[in-house]
Amino acid sequence: MTTAETYYSELVNPMTYQQFKTLTEDLVAQGKTTGDEQTEQRINFTKLNQQRMKRVEKQFVIEPELSALLVQKKQDWNWLVLVESWCGDGAQLLPAITAIAEQTPGITLTVLLRDENPELMNTCLTNGSKSIPKLICEDAETGERLFTWGSRPSAIQQQVVQFKAGNPDAGHDELVQQVQLWYAKDRSHALQQDLISLVREALTARETIV
């Protein structure tokens, strides 16, 4: 069994989702963003992400299959989410992940800034990169890591790969715009489909051990 201490010594600046939202609001008012890289692009993304988070909050509906999986047995899980305020994927996904946790007794959500927690981030890289958001699910009692997810729903990532292959000359801004359109159309479905598989695997593994 792997303990939490294996992954990190301590969490730096742990926040609730509401605290993260307040931080984002304060940064927008100051014309800033999270992290050391205070570029105009990241500051603008942070401002856009405020609206994106609000839209997801209003539209999100948990899917019955995921809800049934999470409540069929009492969980005692910690969900850690690594993110930054300028991250467009994070703005689309963090509110949905938060809503799932809030609707599931036994799941405690903690939001962490990636650049303030490099030790933890380095344990869940995506093809060697620090892609975010990243969700880490741990057993709250033992600290055992049950699964990680991120940085993007597999169905949407597949669309990204196809878009790049079919549009080799497309710039970064065009890709970002396409990704945001896919998220808006998807309405958190792809995320929940990924989580259904991961949660089912985690529950099955626990039953096998028992």
Score class of each variant (00 low, 15 high):
1 M>Q: 11
1 M>S: 13
6 T>Y: 14
10 E>C: 10
11 L>P: 08
12 V>Q: 11
13 N>C: 01
14 P>E: 00
15 M>V: 07
18 Q>L: 14
18 Q>P: 06
19 Q>K: 09
22 T>Q: 14
23 L>V: 01
24 T>Y: 01
24 T>Q: 13
26 D>I: 07
26 D>E: 12
28 V>I: 15
30 Q>E: 11
31 G>D: 04
31 G>S: 01
32 K>R: 13
32 K>L: 10
36 D>R: 12
38 Q>D: 05
38 Q>F: 10
39 T>C: 07
41 Q>P: 04
43 I>C: 04
43 I>A: 02
44 N>T: 03
46 T>L: 01
46 T>R: 04
47 K>T: 00
54 K>D: 14
55 R>H: 04
57 E>D: 14
57 E>N: 03
62 I>K: 08
64 P>N: 12
67 S>F: 05
67 S>V: 02
70 L>M: 04
70 L>V: 00
73 K>P: 06
74 K>W: 02
75 Q>E: 09
75 Q>G: 10
76 D>K: 13
77 W>N: 03
79 W>M: 08
80 L>I: 03
81 V>Y: 04
83 V>E: 01
85 S>H: 12
85 S>A: 15
88 G>L: 06
90 G>Y: 02
91 A>K: 03
92 Q>C: 08
94 L>V: 07
95 P>S: 06
96 A>G: 05
99 A>T: 05
110 T>R: 11
110 T>L: 11
111 V>W: 00
111 V>I: 12
112 L>E: 00
113 L>T: 00
114 R>C: 07
121 M>T: 13
122 N>I: 03
124 C>Q: 09
132 I>V: 09
133 P>Y: 00
133 P>W: 01
134 K>N: 02
135 L>S: 07
136 I>D: 05
137 C>P: 03
138 E>T: 13
142 T>A: 11
143 G>C: 07
144 E>P: 08
145 R>H: 10
147 F>M: 03
147 F>Q: 09
147 F>C: 03
148 T>V: 11
148 T>H: 05
150 G>Q: 06
150 G>V: 00
153 P>K: 01
158 Q>W: 05
160 V>W: 00
161 V>D: 11
161 V>K: 10
162 Q>D: 15
164 K>I: 07
165 A>N: 12
165 A>M: 12
166 G>Y: 10
169 D>A: 15
169 D>H: 11
171 G>R: 07
178 Q>H: 06
179 V>N: 03
180 Q>C: 09
180 Q>S: 13
181 L>T: 00
182 W>Q: 00
183 Y>V: 08
186 D>I: 02
188 S>H: 08
188 S>D: 10
188 S>V: 03
189 H>V: 10
190 A>Q: 04
190 A>I: 06
191 L>Y: 10
195 L>E: 13
196 I>W: 06
197 S>V: 14
198 L>T: 10
200 R>T: 12
201 E>V: 00
202 A>W: 00
203 L>F: 07
203 L>C: 08
204 T>K: 09
208 T>Y: 09
209 I>A: 15
